[in-house]
Structure formats: C-alpha cells, structure tokens
C-alpha cells in the first residue's frame, strides 16, 4: 500500500509529522493514511510531531484531536510532541483545553509516554 504521508516505524510505534497547514483534502488524506497504516503495520502506538507548526488555530487543533481519536479507535496509543512554546501559550489563551491527547515536548519523551501506555495495556 502506498502512503503519501511520511510515516516512520520504530518497533510497534508509528511516527508521523504535520509539516504545514493542511487543506481539507490533505487533512482527510493524512487521517486515512495514518489510520490505515496502524492496521497494516500492526502498530500499537502513534506519535504525531507538530514541531513544524508555528501557528495552530482551532481548525488545526481539531484536525489533530480528530486524528488522535481515530487512531485510538483502531487501537493505538497516541502522543503529540514538539508543540512550540508560543503555540501552547496561544492555545491556552484562546481558552479551553484544545488537546485531549497526551502532549510532550520532544520525541524521546513522546516515545517513552506511548510505550508506558502500551505497557499498562499489556
């Protein structure tokens, strides 16, 4: 199967990243790719890296949340990593908790977090 979304596999963890703002079409492509890949590659966890995003508005936040929820529905633990400090500040200023996913600062912490979550499950 061919995926347009960049996906790295590390053991049972899939690592992907969002590079720029996505259009509606790209969003659904990204979500489909990721959710399918979880099944195909038999992944137990997903880490989404968003360090390239210097702006996250409520639309992008929703995209990230939805993706995480979908990934969880097909049985993967999810962590989002690399959120820029000023983006985090802006998100909380906008109000409401915009992410209902585990978030970490760097990839290493994200991997540790999803591994711990997978271990609990087993």
């Amino acid at each position: 199967m061919n995926f347009k979304t960049p996906l790295l596999q590390l053991g049972d963890v899939l690592i992907t990243s969002i590079q720029t703002d996505l259009s509606d079409a790209q969003v659904s492509e990204f979500q489909q790719d990721l959710v399918r890949a979880i099944g195909v590659k038999n992944a137990n966890a997903v880490v989404i890296d968003i360090s390239a995003l210097d702006v996250v508005d409520s639309f992008m936040a929703r995209v990230i949340n939805d993706t995480a929820r979908a990934a969880r529905l097909v049985g993967a633990e999810v962590a989002v990593c690399g959120i820029q400090p000023y983006v985090a500040m802006t998100l909380v200023e906008m109000g409401r908790q915009l992410f209902d996913v585990q978030t970490t600062f760097n990839l290493e912490q994200a991997l540790a977090a999803v591994k711990a979550a997978v271990d609990v499950r087993l």
Partner: peptide, 11 residues
Amino acid sequence: ADQTRLASAVS
C-alpha cells in the same frame, strides 16, 4: 508571543 497570537487570530 505577540507574533504567534496575532498569526493564530488572523488564521
């Protein structure tokens, strides 16, 4: 900080 909050609002 100001740049980011402006960019977010404009977005």
